[in-house]
Design a binder for these strands. Structure first.
Ligand SMILES: [Mn+2]
Ligand SMILES: [Mn+2]
Ligand SMILES: [Zn+2]
Ligand SMILES: [Zn+2]
Lengths: 128, 128
DNA sequence: ATATTAATGATAACGATAATCAATATCGAT
DNA sequence: ATCGATATTGATTATCGTTATCATTAATAT
């Protein structure tokens, strides 16, 4: 499962993973996929995302993948998702500053953040 | 419906709204609540949020409410949600700069963004 | 007033996820 | 290796938010 998630750049659903695993593990049940995904998410080895299409999407955690942090750009027309890593220089440090400030002000122990931009990709914008 | 959403600071689910409306509109159906919510969301009069509890949550759009823009701080322990408006000075301008940059680079027509921080509130952090 | 069209809501269907539980695998001690 | 205890698995069922259907009712136009 970590392997599957490690090889792709896609954002797979539980069922996607089930299907991807099926050839190699024909007896694996969907229940176990859900269970394991929960487990891995609690261990912060995978991240669960919601992009608004009614199912959870999973990504291997950046530290596991050895990947740089990224945020998401989501087309509300065709549901295409773009990972972007080329942050504005100040983006990361600002997020950290904000995080620190919020932690202090609201006495929150912040573990992660989510930042996504919604809009229309070029094709969807044209088509409209 | 806009009225209900305008009076509260909570993040109501479709059913919450249905229940809130029931005394005044006893014959109103849940279907119509869903339908109208969809409608209002498409008109950008209300915003649909997902805080990870399996149901959509709604807020009156800031421009309708005459409210300042805010982001969310979410306790993953007790699901408490804090609206925060006291941004780091540069937070908003950074988001706008990022938005502009992304729009250009990926030819996206960005309509809105979502930024949330997840963590544990003071009580939940203690209890753990 | 009457015909046409749009809005409503009760009900059923859907789909993702969670709960159940019997079957199977794993482990520890002998 | 053998036996019993414990943990893991997956087929099946249940749950629950949301959506689709469709007959009924309300608006609107002629
Ligand atoms: Mn991604
Ligand atoms: Mn809010
Ligand atoms: Zn698109
Ligand atoms: Zn809490």
């Amino acid at each position: 499962m970590l392997d599957i998630l490690g090889r792709t750049h896609d954002h797979l659903s539980a069922n996607d993973i089930f299907v991807a695993l099926h050839p190699s593990y024909p007896h694996l049940g969907l229940t176990t996929v859900y269970r394991t995904l929960d487990l891995l998410a609690n261990l912060d080895l995978v991240i669960r995302f919601d992009f608004g299409d009614g199912r959870s999407r999973f990504e291997l955690a950046e530290k596991v993948k050895g990947d740089r942090h990224h945020h998401h750009l989501i087309c509300t027309g065709c549901r295409k998702i773009i990972d972007y890593r080329d942050f504005h220089d100040k983006e990361m440090e600002l997020i950290e500053a904000t995080q620190k400030k919020l932690a202090r002000r609201y006495r929150f122990k912040i573990s992660n953040h989510l930042m996504q931009f919604f809009g229309l990709c070029e094709q969807c914008a044209k088509r409209k």
